[in-house]
Design a protein around this nucleic acid. Structure first.
Lengths: 209, 209
DNA sequence: AAAATCATCCCTCTTTCGAGGGGATACAGG
DNA sequence: CCTGTATCCCCTCGAAAGAGGGATGATTTT
Protein backbone atom coordinates (compact mmCIF):
# COMPACT_ATOMS: atom_id res chain seq x y z
CA UNK A 1 0.00 0.00 0.00
CA UNK A 2 2.17 2.79 -1.30
CA UNK A 3 1.44 6.44 -0.99
CA UNK A 4 0.00 6.83 -4.46
CA UNK A 5 -3.26 8.74 -4.91
CA UNK A 6 -5.42 9.22 -1.85
CA UNK A 7 -9.11 8.36 -2.03
CA UNK A 8 -10.98 11.56 -2.77
CA UNK A 9 -14.34 11.71 -1.01
CA UNK A 10 -17.40 13.96 -1.31
CA UNK A 11 -19.53 14.20 1.83
CA UNK A 12 -23.23 15.05 1.44
CA UNK A 13 -25.35 15.51 4.55
CA UNK A 14 -27.59 18.33 5.69
CA UNK A 15 -26.43 18.05 9.29
CA UNK A 16 -23.36 20.11 9.93
CA UNK A 17 -22.38 17.98 12.89
CA UNK A 18 -22.49 14.81 10.81
CA UNK A 19 -20.28 16.39 8.16
CA UNK A 20 -17.74 17.31 10.82
CA UNK A 21 -17.85 13.77 12.12
CA UNK A 22 -17.34 12.24 8.70
CA UNK A 23 -14.47 14.56 7.92
CA UNK A 24 -12.84 13.78 11.25
CA UNK A 25 -13.30 10.05 10.72
CA UNK A 26 -12.02 10.06 7.15
CA UNK A 27 -9.02 12.12 8.14
CA UNK A 28 -7.90 9.45 10.56
CA UNK A 29 -7.18 7.34 7.47
CA UNK A 30 -3.99 8.55 5.78
CA UNK A 31 -5.07 7.44 2.32
CA UNK A 32 -8.41 9.22 2.32
CA UNK A 33 -9.41 12.83 2.12
CA UNK A 34 -12.64 14.79 1.98
CA UNK A 35 -12.49 17.09 -1.04
CA UNK A 36 -15.90 18.73 -0.63
CA UNK A 37 -18.95 18.90 1.60
CA UNK A 38 -22.50 19.31 0.31
CA UNK A 39 -25.42 20.31 2.53
CA UNK A 40 -28.21 19.28 0.17
CA UNK A 41 -28.90 17.14 -2.86
CA UNK A 42 -28.46 19.88 -5.43
CA UNK A 43 -25.07 20.80 -4.02
CA UNK A 44 -24.11 17.13 -4.01
CA UNK A 45 -24.74 16.85 -7.76
CA UNK A 46 -22.91 20.12 -8.40
CA UNK A 47 -19.90 19.21 -6.34
CA UNK A 48 -19.64 15.81 -7.93
CA UNK A 49 -19.26 17.45 -11.33
CA UNK A 50 -16.76 19.98 -10.00
CA UNK A 51 -14.57 17.67 -7.95
CA UNK A 52 -15.06 14.28 -9.59
CA UNK A 53 -14.48 12.43 -6.30
CA UNK A 54 -13.69 8.73 -6.11
CA UNK A 55 -16.57 8.18 -3.72
CA UNK A 56 -19.64 9.95 -2.35
CA UNK A 57 -20.86 9.52 1.22
CA UNK A 58 -24.51 10.45 0.89
CA UNK A 59 -27.33 10.94 3.37
CA UNK A 60 -30.70 9.84 2.02
CA UNK A 61 -32.87 12.56 3.49
CA UNK A 62 -31.79 16.04 2.52
CA UNK A 63 -33.48 19.31 1.62
CA UNK A 64 -33.81 20.55 -1.95
CA UNK A 65 -33.22 17.15 -3.45
CA UNK A 66 -33.06 13.93 -1.52
CA UNK A 67 -30.09 11.63 -1.57
CA UNK A 68 -31.70 9.01 -3.72
CA UNK A 69 -32.53 11.42 -6.52
CA UNK A 70 -29.06 12.89 -6.22
CA UNK A 71 -27.55 9.44 -6.67
CA UNK A 72 -29.71 8.77 -9.69
CA UNK A 73 -28.61 12.02 -11.31
CA UNK A 74 -24.97 11.54 -10.55
CA UNK A 75 -24.95 7.99 -11.85
CA UNK A 76 -26.80 9.00 -14.99
CA UNK A 77 -23.97 11.29 -16.04
CA UNK A 78 -21.21 9.26 -14.41
CA UNK A 79 -22.02 5.57 -14.55
CA UNK A 80 -18.76 4.78 -12.81
CA UNK A 81 -19.56 6.93 -9.78
CA UNK A 82 -19.35 5.14 -6.45
CA UNK A 83 -21.84 6.03 -3.75
CA UNK A 84 -22.20 4.84 -0.18
CA UNK A 85 -25.50 5.79 1.42
CA UNK A 86 -25.28 6.73 5.07
CA UNK A 87 -28.50 7.17 6.92
CA UNK A 88 -30.17 7.20 10.30
CA UNK A 89 -33.34 5.13 10.09
CA UNK A 90 -35.15 4.57 6.83
CA UNK A 91 -37.35 1.69 5.85
CA UNK A 92 -36.59 -1.11 3.47
CA UNK A 93 -38.28 0.82 0.70
CA UNK A 94 -35.67 3.56 0.93
CA UNK A 95 -32.89 1.03 0.96
CA UNK A 96 -34.16 -0.73 -2.13
CA UNK A 97 -34.64 2.55 -3.97
CA UNK A 98 -31.16 3.75 -3.09
CA UNK A 99 -29.62 0.58 -4.47
CA UNK A 100 -31.84 0.77 -7.53
CA UNK A 101 -30.71 4.36 -8.05
CA UNK A 102 -27.13 3.15 -8.24
CA UNK A 103 -25.67 3.28 -4.76
CA UNK A 104 -23.20 0.48 -4.07
CA UNK A 105 -23.50 0.51 -0.34
CA UNK A 106 -25.83 1.36 2.54
CA UNK A 107 -24.85 1.77 6.17
CA UNK A 108 -26.63 3.14 9.20
CA UNK A 109 -25.42 6.22 11.03
CA UNK A 110 -24.97 4.40 14.28
CA UNK A 111 -22.26 2.31 12.65
CA UNK A 112 -18.98 2.68 14.45
CA UNK A 113 -15.83 3.75 12.63
CA UNK A 114 -14.40 0.28 12.29
CA UNK A 115 -17.55 -0.71 10.41
CA UNK A 116 -17.74 2.42 8.31
CA UNK A 117 -14.17 2.54 7.07
CA UNK A 118 -14.31 -0.98 5.62
CA UNK A 119 -17.57 -0.04 3.92
CA UNK A 120 -15.90 2.97 2.35
CA UNK A 121 -12.99 0.86 1.13
CA UNK A 122 -15.29 -1.82 -0.23
CA UNK A 123 -17.47 0.55 -2.21
CA UNK A 124 -14.48 2.55 -3.43
CA UNK A 125 -12.95 -0.72 -4.59
CA UNK A 126 -15.98 -1.48 -6.70
CA UNK A 127 -17.70 -3.87 -4.34
CA UNK A 128 -21.16 -3.73 -2.86
CA UNK A 129 -21.51 -3.31 0.86
CA UNK A 130 -24.59 -3.61 3.04
CA UNK A 131 -24.44 -3.54 6.81
CA UNK A 132 -25.93 -6.45 8.69
CA UNK A 133 -29.11 -4.71 9.78
CA UNK A 134 -29.65 -3.22 6.37
CA UNK A 135 -29.35 -6.58 4.67
CA UNK A 136 -31.84 -7.96 7.16
CA UNK A 137 -34.38 -5.29 6.40
CA UNK A 138 -34.00 -5.90 2.70
CA UNK A 139 -34.58 -9.60 3.21
CA UNK A 140 -37.77 -9.09 5.19
CA UNK A 141 -38.94 -6.92 2.36
CA UNK A 142 -39.44 -9.70 -0.16
CA UNK A 143 -42.61 -10.79 1.52
CA UNK A 144 -44.33 -7.51 0.78
CA UNK A 145 -45.65 -6.47 -2.57
CA UNK A 146 -44.71 -3.19 -4.12
CA UNK A 147 -47.16 -0.33 -4.36
CA UNK A 148 -47.86 1.26 -7.74
CA UNK A 149 -47.21 4.99 -8.26
CA UNK A 150 -50.92 5.66 -8.21
CA UNK A 151 -51.34 3.85 -4.94
CA UNK A 152 -48.57 5.92 -3.41
CA UNK A 153 -50.40 9.06 -4.53
CA UNK A 154 -53.58 7.84 -2.86
CA UNK A 155 -51.60 7.03 0.26
CA UNK A 156 -50.22 10.55 0.39
CA UNK A 157 -53.70 12.01 0.16
CA UNK A 158 -54.93 9.74 2.91
CA UNK A 159 -52.10 10.92 5.15
CA UNK A 160 -53.45 14.46 4.76
CA UNK A 161 -56.83 13.37 6.08
CA UNK A 162 -58.58 13.28 2.74
CA UNK A 163 -61.68 11.13 2.38
CA UNK A 164 -62.10 8.80 -0.57
CA UNK A 165 -64.33 11.35 -2.24
CA UNK A 166 -61.76 14.11 -1.79
CA UNK A 167 -58.98 11.86 -3.04
CA UNK A 168 -61.07 11.11 -6.11
CA UNK A 169 -61.49 14.81 -6.80
CA UNK A 170 -57.82 15.54 -6.26
CA UNK A 171 -56.71 12.79 -8.63
CA UNK A 172 -59.55 13.35 -11.07
CA UNK A 173 -60.93 9.84 -10.82
CA UNK A 174 -64.19 8.48 -9.44
CA UNK A 175 -64.66 7.56 -5.83
CA UNK A 176 -64.98 3.96 -6.97
CA UNK A 177 -61.48 4.00 -8.32
CA UNK A 178 -60.10 5.73 -5.26
CA UNK A 179 -61.64 2.97 -3.17
CA UNK A 180 -60.13 0.35 -5.45
CA UNK A 181 -56.68 1.79 -4.87
CA UNK A 182 -57.35 1.85 -1.16
CA UNK A 183 -58.38 -1.79 -1.27
CA UNK A 184 -55.18 -2.87 -2.97
CA UNK A 185 -53.11 -0.73 -0.59
CA UNK A 186 -54.70 -2.41 2.41
CA UNK A 187 -54.13 -5.83 0.85
CA UNK A 188 -50.52 -5.20 -0.12
CA UNK A 189 -49.50 -3.68 3.19
CA UNK A 190 -51.63 -6.19 5.06
CA UNK A 191 -53.15 -3.64 7.38
CA UNK A 192 -56.56 -3.17 8.93
CA UNK A 193 -57.45 0.33 7.79
CA UNK A 194 -56.20 3.50 6.13
CA UNK A 195 -54.70 4.82 9.32
CA UNK A 196 -52.47 1.82 9.80
CA UNK A 197 -51.69 1.90 6.08
CA UNK A 198 -50.26 5.39 6.51
CA UNK A 199 -48.20 4.55 9.60
CA UNK A 200 -46.79 1.43 7.98
CA UNK A 201 -46.01 3.33 4.80
CA UNK A 202 -44.15 5.94 6.83
CA UNK A 203 -42.15 3.28 8.65
CA UNK A 204 -41.25 1.56 5.41
CA UNK A 205 -40.25 4.79 3.74
CA UNK A 206 -42.97 4.62 1.11
CA UNK A 207 -44.23 8.07 2.02
CA UNK A 208 -42.73 10.93 4.01
CA UNK A 209 -44.50 13.46 6.17
CA UNK B 1 -10.21 34.51 29.84
CA UNK B 2 -7.45 32.79 31.73
CA UNK B 3 -6.64 29.15 31.54
CA UNK B 4 -8.56 28.14 34.62
CA UNK B 5 -10.85 25.08 34.49
CA UNK B 6 -11.97 23.91 31.08
CA UNK B 7 -15.67 23.27 30.49
CA UNK B 8 -16.24 19.55 30.96
CA UNK B 9 -18.84 18.17 28.56
CA UNK B 10 -20.75 14.89 28.33
CA UNK B 11 -21.93 13.95 24.85
CA UNK B 12 -24.97 11.69 24.52
CA UNK B 13 -26.07 10.57 21.07
CA UNK B 14 -26.76 7.15 19.62
CA UNK B 15 -25.09 8.02 16.32
CA UNK B 16 -21.38 7.36 16.40
CA UNK B 17 -20.75 9.83 13.61
CA UNK B 18 -22.52 12.61 15.49
CA UNK B 19 -20.46 11.91 18.59
CA UNK B 20 -17.27 12.17 16.55
CA UNK B 21 -18.51 15.42 15.09
CA UNK B 22 -19.34 16.90 18.47
CA UNK B 23 -16.00 15.87 19.92
CA UNK B 24 -14.18 17.37 16.95
CA UNK B 25 -16.17 20.58 17.22
CA UNK B 26 -15.75 20.93 20.97
CA UNK B 27 -12.04 20.26 20.70
CA UNK B 28 -11.61 23.27 18.45
CA UNK B 29 -12.40 25.35 21.52
CA UNK B 30 -9.42 25.44 23.90
CA UNK B 31 -11.53 25.88 27.00
CA UNK B 32 -13.82 22.93 26.41
CA UNK B 33 -13.32 19.21 26.56
CA UNK B 34 -15.48 16.13 26.11
CA UNK B 35 -15.06 13.97 29.20
CA UNK B 36 -17.39 11.13 28.19
CA UNK B 37 -19.60 9.85 25.39
CA UNK B 38 -22.88 8.02 25.96
CA UNK B 39 -24.66 6.05 23.24
CA UNK B 40 -28.03 5.80 24.94
CA UNK B 41 -30.13 7.36 27.66
CA UNK B 42 -29.17 4.91 30.38
CA UNK B 43 -25.49 5.47 29.75
CA UNK B 44 -26.05 9.21 29.77
CA UNK B 45 -27.49 9.06 33.29
CA UNK B 46 -24.69 6.76 34.43
CA UNK B 47 -21.94 8.87 32.98
CA UNK B 48 -23.37 12.03 34.44
CA UNK B 49 -23.08 10.52 37.91
CA UNK B 50 -19.56 9.25 37.23
CA UNK B 51 -18.09 12.32 35.57
CA UNK B 52 -20.20 15.18 36.92
CA UNK B 53 -19.75 17.23 33.75
CA UNK B 54 -20.46 20.94 33.57
CA UNK B 55 -22.77 20.40 30.62
CA UNK B 56 -24.55 17.63 28.73
CA UNK B 57 -25.08 17.70 24.98
CA UNK B 58 -28.06 15.39 24.61
CA UNK B 59 -29.90 13.93 21.63
CA UNK B 60 -33.62 13.57 22.23
CA UNK B 61 -34.22 10.26 20.46
CA UNK B 62 -32.08 7.45 21.77
CA UNK B 63 -32.47 3.75 22.46
CA UNK B 64 -33.01 2.32 25.94
CA UNK B 65 -34.12 5.61 27.38
CA UNK B 66 -34.87 8.72 25.39
CA UNK B 67 -33.10 12.00 25.94
CA UNK B 68 -36.03 13.69 27.62
CA UNK B 69 -36.38 11.02 30.28
CA UNK B 70 -32.62 11.06 30.76
CA UNK B 71 -32.72 14.80 31.35
CA UNK B 72 -35.52 14.43 33.85
CA UNK B 73 -33.59 11.82 35.80
CA UNK B 74 -30.35 13.73 35.76
CA UNK B 75 -32.02 16.93 36.89
CA UNK B 76 -33.89 15.15 39.62
CA UNK B 77 -30.68 14.11 41.32
CA UNK B 78 -28.67 17.12 40.20
CA UNK B 79 -30.88 20.19 40.01
CA UNK B 80 -27.92 22.29 38.94
CA UNK B 81 -27.17 20.13 35.90
CA UNK B 82 -27.00 22.00 32.62
CA UNK B 83 -28.34 20.31 29.51
CA UNK B 84 -28.40 21.41 25.88
CA UNK B 85 -30.67 19.29 23.69
CA UNK B 86 -29.34 18.68 20.20
CA UNK B 87 -31.69 17.08 17.75
CA UNK B 88 -32.52 16.55 14.12
CA UNK B 89 -36.23 17.15 13.62
CA UNK B 90 -38.72 16.86 16.45
CA UNK B 91 -42.03 18.62 16.81
CA UNK B 92 -42.93 21.40 19.18
CA UNK B 93 -44.28 18.85 21.63
CA UNK B 94 -40.80 17.33 22.05
CA UNK B 95 -39.27 20.74 22.47
CA UNK B 96 -41.73 21.72 25.16
CA UNK B 97 -41.24 18.45 26.98
CA UNK B 98 -37.47 18.75 26.89
CA UNK B 99 -37.61 22.20 28.42
CA UNK B 100 -40.15 21.03 30.97
CA UNK B 101 -37.82 18.16 31.85
CA UNK B 102 -35.13 20.66 32.71
CA UNK B 103 -33.07 21.28 29.59
CA UNK B 104 -31.81 24.85 29.33
CA UNK B 105 -31.30 24.87 25.59
CA UNK B 106 -32.47 23.30 22.37
CA UNK B 107 -30.70 23.45 19.01
CA UNK B 108 -31.15 21.61 15.74
CA UNK B 109 -28.48 19.35 14.32
CA UNK B 110 -28.13 21.33 11.15
CA UNK B 111 -26.87 24.25 13.20
CA UNK B 112 -23.42 25.29 12.12
CA UNK B 113 -20.56 25.47 14.58
CA UNK B 114 -20.73 29.21 15.06
CA UNK B 115 -24.31 28.77 16.24
CA UNK B 116 -23.65 25.74 18.36
CA UNK B 117 -20.65 26.99 20.31
CA UNK B 118 -22.46 30.09 21.57
CA UNK B 119 -25.36 27.88 22.60
CA UNK B 120 -22.99 25.72 24.61
CA UNK B 121 -21.48 28.74 26.31
CA UNK B 122 -24.86 30.25 27.05
CA UNK B 123 -26.27 27.12 28.66
CA UNK B 124 -23.05 26.41 30.53
CA UNK B 125 -23.23 29.99 31.84
CA UNK B 126 -26.66 29.37 33.26
CA UNK B 127 -28.67 30.99 30.51
CA UNK B 128 -31.41 29.56 28.37
CA UNK B 129 -30.79 29.19 24.65
CA UNK B 130 -33.24 28.35 21.90
CA UNK B 131 -32.29 28.50 18.24
CA UNK B 132 -34.41 30.67 15.98
CA UNK B 133 -36.34 27.86 14.33
CA UNK B 134 -36.94 26.13 17.64
CA UNK B 135 -38.32 29.28 19.21
CA UNK B 136 -40.60 29.67 16.24
CA UNK B 137 -41.98 26.21 16.58
CA UNK B 138 -42.63 26.76 20.24
CA UNK B 139 -44.48 29.96 19.49
CA UNK B 140 -46.75 28.34 16.93
CA UNK B 141 -47.53 25.78 19.56
CA UNK B 142 -49.54 28.05 21.81
CA UNK B 143 -52.48 27.95 19.45
CA UNK B 144 -52.90 24.24 19.92
CA UNK B 145 -54.38 22.62 22.93
CA UNK B 146 -52.61 19.89 24.78
CA UNK B 147 -53.80 16.31 24.62
CA UNK B 148 -54.54 14.45 27.83
CA UNK B 149 -52.63 11.24 28.65
CA UNK B 150 -55.70 9.19 27.83
CA UNK B 151 -56.06 10.84 24.45
CA UNK B 152 -52.45 10.04 23.67
CA UNK B 153 -53.14 6.40 24.49
CA UNK B 154 -56.09 6.38 22.14
CA UNK B 155 -53.96 8.03 19.47
CA UNK B 156 -51.36 5.31 19.81
CA UNK B 157 -53.97 2.62 19.35
CA UNK B 158 -55.35 4.35 16.30
CA UNK B 159 -51.88 4.45 14.77
CA UNK B 160 -51.83 0.65 15.02
CA UNK B 161 -54.98 0.42 12.96
CA UNK B 162 -57.31 -0.32 15.85
CA UNK B 163 -61.00 0.45 15.48
CA UNK B 164 -62.89 2.34 18.14
CA UNK B 165 -64.28 -0.93 19.41
CA UNK B 166 -60.82 -2.48 19.65
CA UNK B 167 -59.46 0.60 21.36
CA UNK B 168 -62.27 0.38 23.86
CA UNK B 169 -61.39 -3.24 24.61
CA UNK B 170 -57.70 -2.50 24.90
CA UNK B 171 -58.25 0.37 27.31
CA UNK B 172 -61.12 -1.31 29.13
CA UNK B 173 -63.63 1.41 28.44
CA UNK B 174 -66.79 1.46 26.33
CA UNK B 175 -66.80 2.29 22.67
CA UNK B 176 -68.71 5.45 23.56
CA UNK B 177 -65.81 6.70 25.60
CA UNK B 178 -63.28 5.76 22.96
CA UNK B 179 -65.28 7.80 20.49
CA UNK B 180 -65.40 10.69 22.92
CA UNK B 181 -61.62 10.72 23.16
CA UNK B 182 -61.42 10.55 19.39
CA UNK B 183 -63.77 13.52 19.14
CA UNK B 184 -61.66 15.66 21.41
CA UNK B 185 -58.48 14.58 19.63
CA UNK B 186 -59.91 15.66 16.28
CA UNK B 187 -61.03 18.95 17.78
CA UNK B 188 -57.75 19.72 19.53
CA UNK B 189 -55.54 18.85 16.60
CA UNK B 190 -58.01 20.44 14.19
CA UNK B 191 -57.91 17.59 11.73
CA UNK B 192 -60.48 15.91 9.51
CA UNK B 193 -60.17 12.29 10.59
CA UNK B 194 -58.20 9.76 12.62
CA UNK B 195 -55.65 9.25 9.88
CA UNK B 196 -54.68 12.90 9.75
CA UNK B 197 -54.75 12.97 13.55
CA UNK B 198 -52.05 10.31 13.58
CA UNK B 199 -49.85 12.01 10.98
CA UNK B 200 -50.13 15.36 12.72
CA UNK B 201 -49.39 13.76 16.08
CA UNK B 202 -46.27 12.16 14.61
CA UNK B 203 -45.10 15.45 13.15
CA UNK B 204 -45.65 17.26 16.41
CA UNK B 205 -43.88 14.59 18.41
CA UNK B 206 -46.95 13.59 20.39
CA UNK B 207 -46.57 9.96 19.38
CA UNK B 208 -43.69 7.98 17.89
CA UNK B 209 -43.81 5.09 15.50
C1' DA C 1 -67.52 27.09 47.25
C1' DA C 2 -67.39 27.51 42.45
C1' DA C 3 -65.23 26.59 38.08
C1' DA C 4 -62.64 23.87 35.21
C1' DT C 5 -60.79 19.63 33.55
C1' DC C 6 -60.59 14.74 33.01
C1' DA C 7 -62.55 10.48 32.25
C1' DT C 8 -66.40 8.01 31.86
C1' DC C 9 -71.05 6.53 29.85
C1' DC C 10 -75.23 6.97 26.92
C1' DC C 11 -78.21 7.74 22.52
C1' DT C 12 -79.15 9.22 17.54
C1' DC C 13 -78.15 10.01 12.89
C1' DT C 14 -75.73 10.66 8.60
C1' DT C 15 -71.69 9.78 6.12
C1' DT C 16 -67.80 7.12 5.10
C1' DC C 17 -65.20 2.92 5.04
C1' DG C 18 -64.00 -1.28 3.53
C1' DA C 19 -65.27 -6.09 1.65
C1' DG C 20 -67.43 -8.37 -1.93
C1' DG C 21 -68.52 -8.95 -6.37
C1' DG C 22 -68.49 -7.53 -11.69
C1' DG C 23 -66.07 -5.46 -15.70
C1' DA C 24 -63.05 -2.44 -19.42
C1' DT C 25 -58.87 -0.59 -21.52
C1' DA C 26 -54.05 -0.16 -22.43
C1' DC C 27 -49.55 -1.52 -22.42
C1' DA C 28 -45.25 -4.49 -21.62
C1' DG C 29 -42.93 -8.88 -21.90
C1' DG C 30 -42.70 -13.41 -23.23
C1' DC D 1 -50.84 -13.84 -29.23
C1' DC D 2 -51.43 -14.15 -24.69
C1' DT D 3 -50.65 -13.23 -19.85
C1' DG D 4 -49.89 -10.08 -16.46
C1' DT D 5 -50.30 -5.60 -14.45
C1' DA D 6 -51.86 -0.89 -13.88
C1' DT D 7 -55.53 2.02 -14.17
C1' DC D 8 -60.02 2.85 -14.46
C1' DC D 9 -65.33 2.29 -13.76
C1' DC D 10 -69.56 0.25 -11.59
C1' DC D 11 -72.82 -1.78 -7.80
C1' DT D 12 -74.22 -3.51 -3.04
C1' DC D 13 -74.10 -3.82 1.77
C1' DG D 14 -72.96 -4.15 6.58
C1' DA D 15 -69.94 -2.11 9.74
C1' DA D 16 -67.47 1.82 11.28
C1' DA D 17 -66.65 6.59 11.76
C1' DG D 18 -67.69 10.99 13.15
C1' DA D 19 -70.98 14.89 14.48
C1' DG D 20 -74.58 16.07 17.53
C1' DG D 21 -76.71 16.04 21.75
C1' DG D 22 -76.87 15.03 27.22
C1' DA D 23 -75.01 13.38 31.67
C1' DT D 24 -72.08 11.86 36.01
C1' DG D 25 -68.25 11.49 39.45
C1' DA D 26 -63.47 12.81 40.69
C1' DT D 27 -59.84 15.95 41.01
C1' DT D 28 -57.63 20.29 40.68
C1' DT D 29 -57.61 25.12 40.39
C1' DT D 30 -59.26 29.37 41.48
Amino acid sequence: MKKDKPLRILVADDHYIVRIGLVALVNTEPDMEVVAEAADGVQAVDFFEKFQPDLVLMDSRMPMKNGIEAVREIRKKNPAARVLMLTAYDGDHDIARALAAGAQGYVLKNSTGDRLIPAIRAVAGGHTWLSQDVAGRLASRKSFEQLTPREVQVLNEMAKGRSNKEIAEALKITEYTAKDHLKSILAKLRVADRTEAVTVAIQRGIIQL
